[in-house]
Nucleic acid binder design. Structure first.
Length: 591
RNA sequence: GGCUCCAUAGUUCAACUGAAUAGAAUAUCAGAUUUCGGCUCUGAGGGUUGCAGGUUUGAAUCCUGCUGGAGUCACCA
């Protein structure tokens, strides 16, 4: 039981004993460093239940807690803050219980608990992944890991946007201008190759438009009548009709793209439990629309289109089926959600990692699913995140102003290499090991840079100044981890037995920080925020560095203290590793 | 125009969801270290939390109105 829980119980008890009043909760905060004490009860909120002088109430409670909680050795009251001093023995005992707990901070799911499905990435198959996808992937992966650690079973999934006119564009361009080029013949990653033809289509299309305009057409006419576009539309019709040749081409080019994506996902370190393809799901949802009509959730207009009236909920009317009976984006998403619950019966909720430009779409989707009466519809969350901007402005793939995901990772790795070589701590490492390390550091910098920011906020990414490796960064934290490992390697004696010592001030601070880990994981999960984990880890590392600067570890003469400091360092390292895994960041043994 | 989100040291980010003097990093300046990894540590300067009201014992946080930025309001996805 945490010290906070113990005190909370006693404060409630004390309040009842002193004033004969029951209070539902007690508010805590860590005691500020300039005051004496370890944990602070905020008295102000209690004034709601018992009018009076906060200082007096604080004194009364302090006295009660001191007398009734053996772990508390002293207290003081400042304004409305009751600062309590916790005895060293509580912290050393606490440490001994967590020291060899490999899953400290994590909760395992119970057998009958509902699972969460986390969707992320969900790319188009006509262009390579870029910086925006990087943020999406890192967020989605990390939130999935965090939810898992907080005690829920998780399925990671994505929906691949593999159909539609935009796919036909790159197919058509390849057919017309490709001369049979393949990833093998061009030595290009498949997604890059296909992406090139998507760009090529746009170029040729623009030429045709210019030609038509010079022949006297208006711009609008030209855009609609350009032969390339007509051909692409024709191709889509053929695809939908199942034309063997078109489908074969589609399969071939998509396979190239998937092979390319796999490489990118692998170097990014993300994975999926299951994939959904839009070509399989775009027809789903129609039956549901029928049922919705019967239930009166939807209604039909004269032209045959089907709508959902959300004006009572402060939203607009939303179309769910076209007048020609075909499905729209919304229909598909309704269908896919239901399909997922069918596929995984234990799913009790979903998280959609999608950019904030789709806030409205998900608001509507969730509302419709609720109206349709699915009980899991209450547990849907749109993990909405801000765009990643460049100093030059927005990224636009057709204009070539994107930061490519592969290029970015290569660049980060190269920077990590430069810096590591200067440090020269890698004697005895093979080239393979070195390259692995550079990747660990480079990606660590990138991931931490992106994940430490609140998902809602926009990120300005300057590729020139790249990402810092000092200060509040991934490599700074990795460095601390590696340094602890170095100490542990040098401690060549048995330090496994628990010891009881009088704590140094810095040791106590570190223990307090360690004690916060489990609730930090819970908080991160509740807020779908890897940033909470990132900030916690940084605070832990700063606390350790301060400890490291102030005391000797291996040089300590008292054997018990020396043992304790090694154990403490090890536990800090374990916790760094554990927290960084939640962010999808690896930690190196040396760097 | 309606709705949604954002605005905090020069810059990049925090602030436990309403609490003590709004904290870190970075950059600048000044220091520490015969020591376990000098990518470490200590200190200084730097703020009217976009503006104006309101609620509250207490507001960066909640409410109202402005200003600025972004997004969205498709029988596109």
């Amino acid at each position: 039981m945490s010290i906070q829980n113990i005190i909370e119980t006693k404060v409630k008890e004390g309040f009842l004993a002193l004033y004969n009043i029951e209070i539902p909760t007690v508010e805590f905060q860590a005691t500020r460093k300039e005051f004496e004490g370890d944990i602070t009860v905020v008295v102000f909120p209690l004034l709601r239940y018992k009018k009076g002088n906060p200082v007096q109430i604080g004194e009364d409670l302090g006295k009660y807690v001191l007398e009734n909680v053996p772990e508390i050795t002293n207290y003081n009251v400042l304004k409305g803050f009751l600062n309590l001093v916790v005895d060293d023995s509580f912290y050393t005992e606490f440490f001994n219980t967590i020291y060899s707990d490999a899953t400290y901070g994590f909760i395992s799911p119970k057998a009958d608990d509902k699972a969460m499905m986390v969707e992320y990435s969900s790319p188009n198959t006509n262009k390579p992944l870029h910086l925006g996808h990087v943020r999406n992937n890192l967020l989605g992966y990390s939130v999935a890991e965090i939810i898992k650690a907080a005690g829920k079973k998780v399925y990671k999934t994505q929906i691949i946007n593999d159909r539609g006119i935009h796919i036909c564009k790159s197919m058509l361009a390849w057919e017309k201008f490709g001369n049979g080029e393949t990833p093998e013949s061009s030595h290009l990653k498949g997604d890059k190759l296909v992406g090139n033809y998507y760009v090529r289509f746009d170029q040729e299309y623009k030429k045709e438009i210019a030609q038509l305009i010079s022949e006297g057409k208006t711009e609008e006419e030209a855009k609609k009548e350009a032969p390339l576009l007509l051909e692409a539309q024709q191709m889509l019709l053929k695809w939908e009709a199942g034309d063997a040749q078109v489908v074969a081409l589609w399969k071939k080019m998509n396979a190239w793209v998937y092979a390319g994506f796999d490489v990118t996902y692998k170097s990014m370190g993300v994975d999926f439990d299951n994939l959904y393809y839009e070509s399989n799901t775009y027809l789903l949802g129609k039956d549901v629309v029928e049922q919705g009509l019967e239930k009166g959730v939807f209604y039909k207009k004269e032209d045959g289109s089907v709508w959902c009236d959300l004006t009572e909920d402060g939203l607009d009317e939303k179309i769910v089926l076209r007048s020609d009976g075909t499905a729209v984006y919304m229909t598909q998403d309704i269908g896919t959600a239901i399909q997922r619950v069918k596929d995984y019966a234990d799913v009790g909720g979903m998280v959609y990692t999608v950019g904030n430009e789709q806030d409205y779409h998900f608001q509507v989707l969730f509302l419709i699913l609720k109206k349709l009466g699915f009980d899991w519809a209450k547990q849907l969350h749109h993990l909405s995140y801000g765009m990643v901007d460049l100093p030059s402005g927005k990224m636009k793939s057709r204009e070539g102003t994107v930061v490519d995901a592969d290029d970015l990772m290569i660049e980060m790795t190269a920077t990590a290499k430069e810096i590591s070589e200067e440090l020269g701590k890698l004697d005895g490492y093979s080239n393979i090991e070195k390259n692995e390390l550079y990747q660990t550091i480079g990606l660590g910098a990138l991931k931490y840079f992106i994940l430490k920011v609140d998902p809602k906020k926009r990120i300005l990414f300057d590729p020139k100044s790249s990402v810092d490796f000092q200060g509040n960064t991934g490599p700074f934290i990795q460095y601390t981890y590696a340094r602890i490992q170095s100490i542990i390697r040098k401690a060549d004696f048995d330090y496994s037995q628990p010891v009881t010592i009088e704590l140094h001030e810095k040791e106590k601070e570190l223990l307090k920080q360690l004690e916060l880990y489990p609730e930090t994981v819970q908080q991160a999960a509740a807020n779908y925020s890897p940033a909470v984990i990132a900030n916690y880890t940084y605070d832990l590392v700063k606390e350790f560095n301060s400890f490291y600067q102030n005391v000797h570890i291996l040089g300590e003469e008292n054997l018990d203290k020396k043992i304790f400091r090694i154990q403490l360092s090890k536990k800090v390292a374990d916790t760094i590793k554990s927290a960084f895994l939640l962010l999808g960041i690896k930690v190196p043994e040396r760097m």
